[in-house]
Design a protein around this nucleic acid. Structure first.
Lengths: 145, 145
DNA sequence: CGTGAAAATGAAAATCATATTCAAATTCAA
DNA sequence: TTGAATTTGAATATGATTTTCATTTTCACG
């Protein structure tokens, strides 16, 4: 069985919250885990439909929210206004190419530390943050070295 | 005349682009410059209405876009999904309190430098970025020191 | 000053992503 | 097996923003 660990995680979350284990939820989780990169609800729905022509858009939306709550997915909304989902993993930030849409992840302990210091200086307790760099990737910049 | 410099900037921009100098645009610019902080279109519209009961929502929207193009305003969209405008000034980032909505600006040359280095390492040329820290401000955090 | 072409206005309708409603179907504990 | 609770999916609603379009206003030029 593919994605066995994740299915167990979902099942555990559902039981924990008195929610039900439906075929739709399992199917959407499978498609989501098989997809690559940062996928929109729209594209995810289309891919789900290829295998399960009876699953509705609403169910995909609701299930993705559920997967986020269960810690299996993370929601990201970049400047184009569309929500994308990524498989949950360690904290990181993003580089977004505004020409081709490529998304690259990065992380930097120094920036994290510095931003927390800045926040502390203002009396803030930081709960989450977004740090996104928009520009042109290697393939899209005109002054390619 | 208040906001004389800004009105001249607007007029210059309008002439430059063969656009017209209307009372609505001047009025909205005045209200915008007199407002404090990061104002939403909604609130801006209400304030405009107090003085000019005939100006429409659409005109406020369009004019704010114009002011951004003219370099007089900057558009910001935080995680609540509503667009806010601030009087354009030097680059900076934001701390946002998710309880009371307070918005504090910060800037950090070191973070800027570091993020550009990271981008360069990935072959990216950064055109703009957003760096927002969400959390609880001094007045809203429960573990107030 | 007029004038008229171009641009702006504002009310209403359209968009677009997302959220909600609700009747029918499904799940699952007892 | 059963029935209460949950889920589903189609349709509808929402809410911010954008577009449409008929009417009004601006302003360069005569």
């Amino acid at each position: 069985m593919v994605h066995e660990v994740e299915h167990r995680t979902l099942t555990a979350y559902l039981e924990e919250h008195s929610l039900k284990n439906t075929k739709q939820r399992a199917a959407i989780l499978d498609v989501f885990l098989s997809a690559t990169g940062h996928i929109t609800s729209e594209v995810l729905f289309q891919q789900v439909r290829e295998q399960h022509s009876n699953i509705g858009y609403t169910t995909v939306y609701r299930t993705m929210k559920l997967l986020c709550d269960a810690g299996l997915a993370s929601e990201r909304r970049f400047d184009d206004g569309v929500t994308r989902f990524e498989i949950a993993h360690e904290h990181h930030d993003h580089l977004v190419c505004t020409r081709c849409g490529k998304i690259i992840e990065f992380e930097c302990a120094m920036i994290e530390k510095t931003q927390n210091e800045i926040a502390e200086r203002h009396g803030f307790r930081v709960l989450r943050h977004r740090h996104e760099l928009y520009g042109h990737c290697r393939d899209c910049r005109e002054d390619s070295p």
